[in-house]
Design a protein around this nucleic acid. Structure first.
Length: 108
DNA sequence: GCTTTGACACTAA
DNA sequence: CTTAGTGCCAAAG
């Protein structure tokens, strides 16, 4: 078996999130079988693909990862950019909070 | 191999 | 509601 790095697993799991849905660092980490909420974010920060998901395949929908309290969290290209991208997926943000957060929340 | 950093989570005040 | 403190884990220096 190929033991991929923790970050690699995060990306892979993240790619499983359907479009128009989001997940949280906590759920993501929990799905990986760990409590490394921060490590997940760390992996994204060092992000191999700062490009937004789209055209080609290797892009990672980093903008679909949000905080557990409903905030969008951070983003390498800027939180505003992240909000904009989420808006494109049909997710609205209100005062830095996601509307119907639980509704868009995808569980593994 | 220890120290520092960080796109977090949770609890207490 | 906000602020502060603690815990957690992985990657980089």
């Amino acid at each position: 078996m190929k033991s991929k790095s923790f970050s690699q697993r995060c990306y892979d799991l993240l790619k499983k999130v359907p479009k128009g849905k989001i997940t949280t660092y906590k759920l993501l980490a929990h799905a990986l079988g760990t409590k490394a909420y921060r490590a997940v974010g760390n992996a994204m920060n060092k992000n191999p693909y700062p490009g937004i998901c789209g055209v080609h395949k290797k892009e990672i929908p980093c903008h679909r990862v949000v905080k557990s309290n409903g905030e969008v969290g951070g983003f390498a290209l800027g939180t505003k950019k992240k909000i904009a991208l989420l808006g494109e997926e049909g997710i609205k943000i209100k005062n830095r909070k996601i509307e119907n957060f639980e509704k868009f929340l995808h569980k593994f």
